[in-house]
């Protein structure tokens, strides 16, 4: 079924973008995201060198009903998995007989604001590291546990739990660390490279046509400040590399593997494009 809808969806996107059929202007809403009474930064002045003057959360591009689901952590269904992540945090695993909490204690303190500053430079591996890979590194080195396979085990739940400890904190990554700037450059190149049978780049939708309707979808800036994010379509948390791969698949291109050099570079660059926006994990999207 997915294959069929993909097959049909692809040409329609291409046609819409090529012919401008669906290029209906629909502005993001003028609304303020307040989660449990805490105001989020959903519009921020773009960092220097950014193509936009203002960076905007994807929340501003969603319907009132979807926006409301994110504004209350009780009604946000993504919080179920965040709670599951909290349980994993305290679960002993591996040969060292440790849980995350054995070393890091209360995540509300030890992980506060941490997720807002990832990806970071990892000198051990000589590449950027995101929360998922940092968790895996910890599992292998400190817990004596198997690393999680992509999107498997507790990877999404634990990543979401860690990032949720930064709810409201503005995204800010340090490009001065190690070779981060080179990876940013590479990510930028990928962002603007048209790929796939539909010949689309990230920028084709999320920059050139941002704010317009592509059929019934309101194109956002493609920010990742709310990942892992609860998607109504799948009814569960979706990781950022899953979303990258989904977007790339929709251009009918070969998909790079999760955590590959390509997607890590893209994560560095796209995270930077959302500099200043609050971490919204778990955001709620369509």
């Amino acid at each position: 079924m997915n294959n069929i809808s993909l097959f049909i969806t692809g040409p329609v996107i291409a046609l819409a973008l090529a012919a401008g059929i669906a290029a209906v202007k629909a502005d993001p809403v003028d609304d303020t995201l307040t989660i449990d009474g805490k105001e989020m930064i959903s519009r921020a002045k773009a960092p220097e060198g950014h193509p936009f003057d203002e960076v905007m959360s994807g929340w501003l591009f969603r319907t009132a009903e979807t926006r409301a689901l994110e504004a209350d952590t009780f009604v946000n269904p993504g919080m179920l998995e965040v709670e599951e992540g909290g349980a994993i945090w305290n679960t002993v695993e591996g040969t060292a007989g440790k849980s995350c909490a054995s070393c890091h204690g209360d995540a509300a303190e030890s992980m506060k604001d941490v997720g807002a500053n990832y990806p970071k430079w990892d000198s051990d591996s000589g590449r950027p590291i995101n929360i998922e890979l940092q968790i895996n590194k910890c599992r292998e080195k400190n817990m004596g546990a198997e690393p999680y396979a992509f999107d498997k085990g507790g990877q999404k739940a634990l990543t979401a739990y860690v990032k949720h400890q930064s709810l409201g904190t503005p995204v800010s990554i340090d490009l001065g660390q190690g070779e981060m700037q080179n990876w940013w450059d590479r990510g930028k190149e990928l962002y603007y490279t048209r790929t796939g049978q539909l010949n689309l780049s990230c920028a084709s939708c999320h920059e050139a046509n941002m704010g317009k309707m592509i059929r019934a979808d309101h194109l956002s800036q493609g920010q990742i400040n709310g990942f892992p994010t609860y998607r109504l379509k799948q009814g569960k948390l979706i990781s950022v590399h899953n979303r990258f791969r989904g977007c790339i698949r929709d251009t009918r291109a070969e998909m790079p593997k999760a955590f590959s050099d390509e997607l890590m570079a893209l994560e560095v660059y796209v995270t930077w494009r959302g500099t200043g926006l609050s971490v919204e994990t778990p955001a709620v999207r369509q």
């Binding site: 809808s5 993909l6 939708c205 059929r215 019934a216 979808d217 998607r231 979303r243 977007c247 929709d250």
Partner: peptide
């Protein structure tokens, strides 16, 4: 019920 542009 809308059909999105992107299957994701």
């Amino acid at each position: 019920v809308t059909i999105g542009g992107c299957g994701g």
